[in-house]
Design a protein around this nucleic acid. Structure first.
Length: 662
DNA sequence: GTGAAGGTTGGTACA
DNA sequence: ATGTACCAACCTTCA
């Protein structure tokens, strides 16, 4: 080996691919002595992020696939999966492996930024040069923010304008033809085990989690990707399989159909289609970086350009395939600008404040949501549970939620349906509750996109037409009048006549009997269990939709009129209640509340583990706008039954009018 | 400043 | 079957 040659760690994260990786290319462009391709098993992922079994399995698929691809290029190398978080492991590796360079792809997620900043500081101290390249989005998200005047991109217009300023989308880079040898992998360093608290993933496990218990090299001592058993989880149920080679083959088939690719219009694809679905299902691969979005973009654009030249029809942004990628970039750069606050209402300058039911608890020492919530009304908590488990009594909603739980992927419009239903168009429950459930169950969960879409659908940011409301009956009917989708995912209804399939409680008893199902109860007993009559059961609707829809629209109108955002001083300190009529929807009763949407607040409520912040092995991020939350304990109100004086009022007029009218 | 048009993908009634 | 007007009314963008 040449003297002075580089000893490089390539740190794989959400870029589990060889094709079109600017960061990997930068590493290979160095005058290399050794290249260590590694993955650090982050405790954030194991414990703090909500990762259900299907996404874990998809990640493991991607790791195995990449590892095999690396080995094909060099049989001494692979993806070395190391059982320790990066922030404790990397400094040790810098020394032991005599590392000169650390290379990785840029990640603008709030958590990843904190982690990477810490790693970069440690690298600096160790004299290790760090190379970071953007490759996760079409444009560098920070560049888009700059081009947008330092502000988050909140509309597709802003995104397009910022994108035009930021310049051309980089052309894809070929996969490497060779990978250098790794160095000596016989490690003699002590493993630092992260603390498992808080452990949001505990409830998804059926046996003990053992991610760190077999040492850094894992149970076989060979740094191979973990198995789902090692994570203490039951077998995955998703039919979708991760991996770069899988998605490149999928994509080849999609692109071979130039008409589909060139004329794709998202709103015209059916949310009720299954086997096969109506869209290309590339999102989970984009999330893990098994597919490069820029590669995807240019492959599509080449076809679009070709069709244009041949005077064939093409679809345009934002409905087109590349329009979907543009939305992804919009959400990423909105998140890049707002940081931690992007993923919550509290302290978020761009998220409208609405007094939803089941609001997030707030840690006022860092202004972040804790991951738990307040039950302002037990009935709403029961609704949330029924929504989460697909037992709302609305077959369209339940079919979608069951497909989500089983397969980890649902169509975009299906997401619209259930998100609208949970928030502004049905249960009036905080979008943050829904986002948490999606985070657990989606294999394509991407914080920026998930949070952005929940804000969109709940009309708290990005979108405001709350009077456009999805019906859990009509919307399904429009796409699937026969109810094939419902019959597939809610099998207890599979023999019901089509005219009752979206509203089974309206079926006469004779029809229910003939279909072998009884519409009864609240879904608390297992939906597929037999009732005493020997029939299967399916629950009655958990509320009257039209009534709830009216309540929600009134609530939204009211909240819009009040016009607060998440960083409003009144939201921060709990005095937001003064601005709402006691009869307004949500936990609004009384004069004083807690921070965020909390109805009540005890100063000691947020003690304990969760005060460590969202990143257990990192320093707690400093919140902005501090000082507003403290000192409220003495004035905590939540006095039930208090009726406001008329001073608060601009709303009252509107309310009276509506009441008189209605 | 103002008003009109547009906004990734609603529902319903009626021609 | 498909297209259109209307529902009641939000925000951003742009002339």
């Amino acid at each position: 080996m040449a003297k002075g040659a580089a000893r490089v760690i390539y740190w794989f994260r959400t870029d589990l691919r060889l094709h079109d990786s600017p960061a990997l290319q930068a590493a290979l462009d160095l005058k290399l002595e050794v290249l260590f391709p590694i993955w650090c098993w982050d405790s954030h992922y194991v414990y703090r992020a909500r990762v259900g079994v299907n996404r874990f399995q998809f990640l493991i698929d991607c790791q195995n696939d990449l590892s095999e691809s690396i080995t094909k290029l060099n049989n001494k190398s692979k993806l070395f999966v190391m059982r320790e978080p990066a922030v404790t492991l990397l400094p040790k590796l810098f020394k032991t492996w005599k590392i000169t360079h650390l290379v990785f792809e840029k990640d603008t997620d709030a958590y990843a930024r904190d982690r990477d900043n810490q790693v970069m500081e440690m690298a600096k101290q160790a004299g290790v040069e760090v190379i970071v390249k953007s490759g996760r989005t079409l444009w560098d998200s920070d560049e888009l923010v700059k081009a947008n005047g330092g502000k988050p991109t909140m509309s597709s217009t802003q995104l397009q304008a910022a994108g035009a300023k930021a310049g051309e989308i980089a052309r894809p880079i070929d996969a490497p033809k060779r990978i250098p040898d790794p160095g000596d992998m016989d490690l003699n360093i002590e493993q630092t085990k992260p603390k498992p608290e808080p452990d949001f993933n505990a409830k998804y496990r059926d046996s003990e989690e053992a991610s760190y218990s077999s040492g850094i090299a894992g149970p076989k001592g060979d740094y191979s990707p973990p198995t789902i058993e090692e994570l203490g989880m039951p077998a995955a149920t998703t039919p979708h399989k991760g991996g770069e080679t899988v998605v490149l083959k999928m994509l080849e088939e999609i692109l071979a159909d130039e008409e589909y690719t060139g004329t794709f219009e998202k709103p015209k694809t059916s949310p009720a289609a299954f086997e096969p679905q109506s869209t290309c299902l590339t999102s989970p691969y984009l999330h893990f970086g098994a597919l490069s979005c820029r590669y995807f973009y240019h492959k599509v654009q080449d076809i679009v350009d070709k069709r244009k030249k041949e005077k064939q029809s093409v679809s345009k942004m934002p409905e087109s395939l590349n329009g979907q990628l543009a939305f992804r970039d919009m959400y990423f750069s909105a998140q890049a600008a707002l940081g931690w606050s992007f993923a919550q209402t509290y302290n978020n300058s761009h998220c409208r404040f609405i007094p939803w039911h089941l609001p997030s608890k707030i840690n006022t020492s860092n202004n972040l949501i804790t991951g738990s919530y307040e039950v302002d009304d037990p009935e709403k908590d029961a609704w949330l549970h029924r929504w989460t488990h697909g037992t709302t009594g609305f077959p369209w909603i339940d079919a979608i939620m069951r497909q989500l739980r089983q397969e980890g992927w649902i169509h975009h419009l299906a997401r619209h349906s259930v998100a609208c239903f949970l928030t502004r168009g049905g249960a009036y429950i905080s979008w943050e509750r829904g986002a948490e459930v999606f985070e657990e169950l989606l294999i394509d969960h991407e914080t920026a996109c998930n949070v952005g879409n929940w804000q969109w659908l709940s009309c708290t940011a990005f979108y405001a037409q709350f009077y456009r409301c999805y019906s859990p009956v009509a919307f399904g009917k429009k796409w699937d009048p026969e109810g094939r989708f419902v019959r597939r995912y809610v099998p207890e209804l599979k023999d019901l006549p089509a005219r009752y399939i979206y509203e089974p409680h309206k079926a006469p008893i004779a029809d229910q009997k003939a279909a072998g199902v009884q519409i009864t109860g609240d879904g608390s007993s297992s939906a597929t269990s037999s009732s005493s009559s020997g029939l299967k059961t399916y629950p009655k609707p958990m509320f009257d939709f039209n009534t709830q829809r009216e309540i929600c629209i009134q609530g939204m109108k009211n909240a819009y009129r009040v016009g607060m955002h998440g960083n409003d001083p009144r939201v921060l300190d709990g005095s937001w209640k003064k601005a709402f009529d006691d009869d307004a929807e949500g936990p609004t009763e009384g004069v004083k509340g807690g921070p965020g949407g909390l109805e009540t607040w005890d100063d000691v409520e947020e003690g304990g583990e969760e005060d460590d912040g969202p990143v257990d092995e990192l320093k707690t991020p400093k919140g902005k706008g501090k000082g507003s939350g403290k000192g409220q304990a003495s004035s905590k109100g939540g006095k039930k039954g208090h009726k406001r004086e008329h001073s608060q009022s601009t709303l009252d007029g509107a309310f009276e009018k509506k009441r008189a009218k209605g």
